[in-house]
Simulated scan of single mutants.
Amino acid sequence: MSEKVSAKVDAKKETKRILFGLIGAVIMAVNIKTFVRAGGLYPGGFNGVTLLFQTICDRFFDITVPFSPISLALNAIPAIISFKAIGKKFTVVTSCMIVATSILTDIVPAVPITEDILLISIFGGLINGAAISISLIGGTSTGGTDFIAIYFAEKKNKDVWNYILLGNAVVLIIAGFLFGWDKALYSIIFQYTSTQMIHLLYQNYKKVTLFVVTENAEAVYQAISEVTNHSATEFSATGMYSNEKRKMIYSVVSTVEAKMLTRKVMEADAHAFVNIVKTDTLLGRFYQENNY
């Protein structure tokens, strides 16, 4: 790839990163002012900690604290770690998104859509998860605990969103103890809905195992290599009904790659038999494209 083409690809990637990050920041800020604060919820992560701190200052000390300085202070340490461990461009753009979200949260007017706390919990969670997913798909994030999740996904190849959900329980216990357990329990619905939305929309780190029985093993392998940059393992096989010799290709790919790869495999061998199995645990060397 020439330097000119490479620069063009990089520019397109960074434009996408910034655009998706801005969209996520706007959605996150509007969601906080429209749903989260209207329901008195605590969304988890550093936004939840910030809102909890604001509420404590307001209720017990009669002090109104702006969202921005608290949020930025809490995100500072994870951002420094992310800069070193994940990627400079990713961290810089994410930091800009954190600033944008913080400022927008302070200036966007509060316009509650409904007073039904259950509807606020469910739809607020869905929108929150969508905002996080849009940012992640674009190659950035909304900051805070996203830094932690992406670090483990990149370095440890682990999905830790559910563990982060458990970690948020500490914030909810404090909120429940201080301000009533009803809001804390509704916040659990909010966070659970948000986490499931992320699992639905963002699938880059979900893995599947691909089994392909074929007569054209080399063409199938070339398709796997071109689409995913992964290698594969070839087994000799025999059809029990026909007693004909076949080859079975085994490979592990991401869920996103599997959709395109299945089409390519069938183009390489229209008579191939393809079986895709969900992979929960994977040990050993596995190529993971770094989008950060």
Score class of each variant (00 low, 15 high):
residue 205 Y to Q: 14
residue 150 I to P: 05
residue 292 Y to Q: 15
residue 134 I to N: 03
residue 160 V to S: 03
residue 161 W to T: 08
residue 16 K to Q: 03
residue 192 Y to R: 04
residue 119 L to H: 02
residue 122 I to T: 04
residue 216 N to M: 00
residue 146 D to W: 06
residue 268 A to C: 02
residue 117 I to G: 07
residue 62 D to H: 07
residue 228 T to F: 00
residue 236 S to M: 07
residue 157 N to V: 13
residue 227 V to W: 00
residue 270 A to Q: 15
residue 201 L to F: 05
residue 188 I to D: 07
residue 239 G to P: 05
residue 3 E to W: 11
residue 270 A to I: 15
residue 128 N to I: 08
residue 120 I to L: 09
residue 73 A to L: 15
residue 90 F to S: 04
residue 124 G to P: 10
residue 105 T to S: 09
residue 133 S to N: 01
residue 121 S to P: 10
residue 43 P to Q: 11
residue 82 S to A: 12
residue 116 D to C: 06
residue 146 D to C: 09
residue 112 P to T: 08
residue 46 F to L: 13
residue 73 A to Q: 10
residue 87 G to S: 09
residue 269 D to T: 07
residue 162 N to L: 14
residue 177 F to H: 10
residue 53 F to S: 10
residue 50 T to G: 02
residue 222 Q to W: 04
residue 205 Y to S: 11
residue 47 N to P: 12
residue 64 T to V: 00
residue 142 T to Q: 11
residue 12 K to P: 00
residue 141 S to V: 05
residue 78 P to R: 15
residue 278 K to P: 06
residue 50 T to R: 11
residue 42 Y to F: 14
residue 60 F to P: 00
residue 106 D to W: 00
residue 43 P to S: 08
residue 36 V to C: 02
residue 124 G to M: 13
residue 48 G to S: 06
residue 169 A to K: 11
residue 104 L to V: 04
residue 116 D to M: 03
residue 224 I to H: 01
residue 106 D to V: 05
residue 207 K to T: 12
residue 38 A to K: 02
residue 74 L to Y: 10
residue 129 G to L: 09
residue 238 T to K: 13
residue 109 P to A: 03
residue 165 L to P: 13
residue 108 V to I: 11
residue 243 N to G: 01
residue 232 A to W: 04
residue 270 A to D: 10
residue 120 I to E: 07
residue 18 I to P: 03
residue 35 F to R: 05
residue 286 F to Q: 08
residue 71 S to R: 08
residue 73 A to P: 13
residue 220 V to Y: 01
residue 247 K to L: 01
residue 271 H to L: 10
residue 243 N to T: 06
residue 234 E to C: 07
residue 135 S to T: 03
residue 165 L to W: 09
residue 172 L to G: 04
residue 115 E to I: 00
residue 71 S to I: 13
residue 135 S to Y: 04
residue 136 L to D: 03
residue 113 I to S: 08
residue 70 I to T: 04
residue 266 M to S: 12
residue 26 V to W: 07
residue 165 L to S: 06
residue 134 I to R: 00
residue 152 F to M: 08
residue 62 D to F: 01
residue 88 K to W: 15
residue 197 M to T: 14
residue 3 E to N: 14
residue 251 S to M: 01
residue 222 Q to P: 04
residue 158 K to Y: 13
residue 280 D to W: 01
residue 172 L to F: 13
residue 163 Y to N: 13
residue 16 K to T: 00
residue 227 V to D: 02
residue 228 T to A: 02
residue 108 V to M: 15
residue 146 D to G: 08
residue 217 A to M: 03
residue 182 D to F: 12
residue 232 A to T: 01
residue 144 G to M: 15
residue 174 I to G: 08
residue 73 A to R: 09
residue 155 K to A: 11
residue 99 V to P: 06
residue 281 T to Y: 15
residue 123 F to I: 10
residue 86 I to R: 04
residue 203 Q to I: 08
